[in-house]
């Protein structure tokens, strides 16, 4: 029998399998915590920090990613406090300013309540969520992709920069890549980057419930975990 623990997420008691993550527990109960690097079945790394929550303990709270936080009996989690909403919005703003050329990223920005982008746009083609790397390593055990470099120079590469023989061209890396979903209005050229904002209507979000999951169509594009269940 699977052992279960009970925790409180946004005031609701939630049962979850011992050892699972807070994000999984929340999603299972229809509480959508926005997330990007998390893919069901892959190890979570806590890279994007979009899924942050407040973990309340003895009257104080710590902010941490929910995908790497293991459920514990009696835990009290808040997923959408004002503070979290603000921080999440700021992270999403950093993401969309860095890599606006993707419907998935634009969608996340909108879901997290980004209304304006206060940084000059860049046009990166990778947000380093590591979905491709982990999928390749953990599902196919191929390790055909990996991260090299650090800081600003960190990027996804084939070993020694050449596609290895053992890469089976399965295409999973592209399927799971949030950057492979073009924005509704077509690819954005350099200098034309903007916050698209069109998807706002599709997510049918009432103000104040930022992040509530409505199983929007947008998530399909880059295999949002809600669409894979």
């Amino acid at each position: 029998m699977i052992q279960q623990v009970t925790l409180m997420i946004d005031g609701a008691p939630v049962k979850a399998a011992k050892g699972s993550s807070v994000l999984d527990a929340a999603l299972e109960h229809g509480i959508c915590i926005p997330h990007l690097c998390h893919v069901p079945g892959l190890k979570d790394t806590g890279a994007c920090r979009i899924c942050i929550v407040e973990n309340m303990k003895n009257g104080s709270s710590t902010i941490t990613a929910s995908c790497t936080l293991t459920v514990q009996e009696g835990m009290v989690i808040r997923t959408s406090t004002e503070k979290i909403q603000k921080l999440r919005r700021n992270i999403a703003e950093l993401l969309v300013a860095q890599a606006p050329n993707s419907r998935a990223i634009q969608d996340i920005a909108v879901r997290c309540g980004v209304k304006e982008v206060r940084y000059p746009f860049r046009n990166d083609n990778c947000v380093q969520c590591g979905r491709c790397v982990r999928y390749c390593a953990e599902i196919w055990r191929a390790n055909a992709l990996g991260f090299v470099g650090r800081g600003k120079n960190r990027r996804v590469e084939f070993p020694f920069g050449i596609r290895p023989e053992f890469c089976k061209n399965c295409g999973s890396c592209i399927l799971y890549c949030p950057m492979s979903v073009t924005p509704c209005g077509g690819p954005m050229k350099r200098g034309e980057e903007r916050l698209c904002g069109k998807c706002e209507s599709q997510t049918l979000m009432a103000p104040g419930v930022v992040g509530a999951c409505v199983r929007c169509d947008l998530g399909k594009g880059f295999s949002c975990s809600r669409h894979m269940q």
């Binding site: 806590g46 979009i50 950093l94 993401l95 947000v127 650090r150 800081g151």
Partner: peptide, 13 residues
Amino acid sequence: QDESCGKCVPCRI
């Protein structure tokens, strides 16, 4: 900026 490992968004970007 040079020494950040680059793994997570708030630090790298």
